[in-house]
């Protein structure tokens, strides 16, 4: 009680997310044609470790200490590449599903980090409906894991709470896994 979001907030997020997905579709072709910077080397679809490092960064994946250069987000190799439209627009549905699976598997055994939230949101925004059975199972696993992590939070001020609530909301309400929804 007090940790889960109101119905009104959930409905707003579903509406906004639906708009975002439409815009992604509308602009996908434009962004697909953009040339990526030389340092952006996307892993092959079956390179699980490569994708985890690409999205979350070496600091998180290799458990190395984070160095604060004072310029956040500059070192993408260490901090992970953000889900820029020019990157996610180049992912086909098979890759979207595969990366989603890699990141959800990673989250099963580790703590939530901000990069993870951004990537999961971006991948869900690119995941086409109707979902394949594997995708159903995958996103349900994500919502359950978010619920478990949320249940262990000690404070409502925890930075992770809003991100966890958002992901649960989108899986349950946008992708219609209603039994997992916060009432």
């Amino acid at each position: 009680l007090g940790f889960s979001p109101s119905l009104k907030w959930q409905q707003q997020q579903v509406g906004n997310f639906s708009d975002i997905r439409q815009s992604v579709n509308k602009h996908r072709q434009l962004w697909q044609t953009k040339t990526l910077d030389d340092n952006v080397i996307m892993p092959k679809i079956d390179d699980e470790e490569g994708w985890k490092r690409f999205c979350l960064g070496e600091n998180v994946c290799l458990n190395t200490a984070q160095t604060d250069s004072g310029e956040p987000g500059v070192d993408y190799i260490k901090m992970g590449f953000p889900p820029f439209l020019s990157i996610v627009s180049k992912l086909n549905q098979a890759t979207v599903s595969a990366v989603l699976e890699y990141l959800i598997n990673w989250f099963e055994e580790r703590e939530f980090v901000p990069q993870l939230g951004r990537w999961l949101y971006a991948l869900l925004a690119c995941l086409e409906k109707p979902l394949l059975p594997e995708a159903h199972s995958l996103i349900r696993q994500l919502a359950r894991r978010c619920s478990t992590v949320r249940a262990n939070l000690e404070s409502k001020d925890d930075e992770r709470l809003s991100a966890l609530n958002l992901l649960i909301c989108l899986v349950a309400r946008y992708f219609e896994q209603n039994d997992l929804a916060d009432k």
Binding site: W9, I20, H27, L85, Y121, A163, L166
Partner: peptide, 30 residues
């Protein structure tokens, strides 16, 4: 003229990241 350029300006390379950050921030305010 058509409104297309305005839309493109708003919908930049970081649009998904901004949308996520906005959604997360909205819970903190709610």
């Amino acid at each position: 003229g058509t409104g297309q350029s305005d839309d493109s300006d708003i919908w930049d390379d970081t649009a998904l990241i901004k949308a996520y950050d906005k959604a997360v921030a909205s819970f903190k305010k709610s």
